[in-house]
C-alpha cells in the first residue's frame, strides 16, 4: 500500500509542526508514506470564491502528483472534501476518478483503512473538540446536531484512544467557527464574532486546548485567542494523536 501525503498550503507555510506530526504518526503506524515534492494547494480557496475555472490548473497539478498512490491522505477534512466533491468539473479520467475516490482525511484513513484500535499517546488536558464543518457535514465524519442519524464520530473515536484526555461537552457542539476561507476577510465582523462565540463556549467549560481536524479553523480561533491574550491553546488532531505535549 502506497500512501501519498498531501500537506495543505497554509499548513505547509504556517503550521509545519502539523505536517510533521501527521507524517510521524503515519510512519509510527508502519505506513509507507511518501510526500511528493512540488505540491501546492488543492484549489479550494479559489473555487469557494467563485473561481473554479482558475482553480483547474491546481486540480490537474494535484492529480498529476498523486494519481499513482493507493491512498492520498491529508490532515484536513476541508481539503479532502474539496478534492472528492469539487474535482468533478475537470475531465473524469481514470486518474481523476482514482484520486477523488481515494483521497482521505487523516481520521478516515486511520479508522477506515488502518482499522486503528489503540494508540500510544498521552494528553492529560481538558480538550474541546471543534467540529470543522466540511469534515462534519461534508465528509460526514460524525453525527451533526441537525440530522437525526446516528453515526460514530471518527475524530472523537480517535481522541478517546488518547490517555488522560478529558473531552468536554460544549453547549453548541458543532457551530461553525466563522473562518470560511475568504469569508474571514470578506465579512471580518461576523467572522470574528463567530470565532469569539466559539471560544467563549470552550472557555466556559474550562477547556485548556481546542482541537480540530482542520487547522484553518484553528488558525482563525488562535488568532482571536492570542489577540485577546487568553491562555487557551490550539492543537491539531494529528499533533495530539502523535503525542505532542504542551
Amino acid at each position: 500500500m502506497k500512501v501519498g501525503l498531501f500537506i495543505p498550503c497554509y499548513i505547509d507555510q504556517f503550521y509545519p509542526q502539523v505536517g510533521i506530526a501527521t507524517l510521524e504518526l503515519l510512519e509510527k503506524l508502519d505506513v509507507q508514506v511518501e510526500f511528493p515534492a512540488n505540491q501546492t494547494c488543492c484549489g479550494q480557496p479559489l473555487a469557494n470564491s467563485g473561481s473554479e475555472q482558475e482553480a483547474e490548473p491546481a486540480y490537474h497539478h494535484f492529480v498529476d502528483l498523486f494519481h499513482h498512490f493507493d491512498h492520498i491522505v491529508m490532515p484536513s477534512g476541508s481539503c479532502t472534501y474539496h478534492v472528492r466533491k469539487h474535482y468533478d468539473r475537470i475531465e473524469q479520467t481514470a486518474e481523476v476518478q482514482h484520486v477523488r475516490k481515494n483521497t482521505l482525511d487523516l481520521s478516515e484513513f486511520l479508522l477506515d483503512v488502518l482499522n486503528l484500535q489503540s494508540l500510544n499517546a498521552r494528553f492529560p488536558y481538558k480538550v474541546g473538540l471543534h467540529q470543522s464543518c466540511h469534515g462534519l457535514r461534508g465528509l460526514r465524519l460524525g453525527p451533526d446536531s441537525e440530522q437525526n442519524l446516528s453515526r460514530p464520530s471518527k475524530i472523537q473515536t480517535l481522541l478517546n484512544m488518547v490517555d488522560g484526555i478529558e473531552l468536554v461537552d460544549l453547549s453548541r457542539p458543532d457551530e461553525c467557527c466563522g473562518f470560511g476561507g475568504t469569508f474571514a476577510v470578506g465579512e471580518p465582523a461576523i467572522s470574528v464574532k463567530m470565532g469569539k462565540d466559539r471560544i467563549a463556549d470552550h472557555e466556559s467549560k474550562g477547556v485548556e486546548v481546542i482541537t480540530a481536524g482542520d487547522m484553518s479553523c484553528l488558525m482563525h480561533l488562535e488568532g482571536i485567542i492570542r489577540r485577546q491574550g487568553k491562555q487557551m491553546k490550539v492543537k491539531h488532531l494529528a499533533e495530539i494523536l502523535n503525542g505532542v505535549q504542551l
Binding site: G50, C133, R137, E146, D174, C176, G180, T182, F183
Partner: peptide, 10 residues
C-alpha cells in the same frame, strides 16, 4: 458570499 458554506442549512 455571506456564508461560510458550513452546510447547517441544508
Amino acid at each position: 458570499f455571506a456564508s461560510t458554506l458550513c452546510g447547517s442549512c441544508s
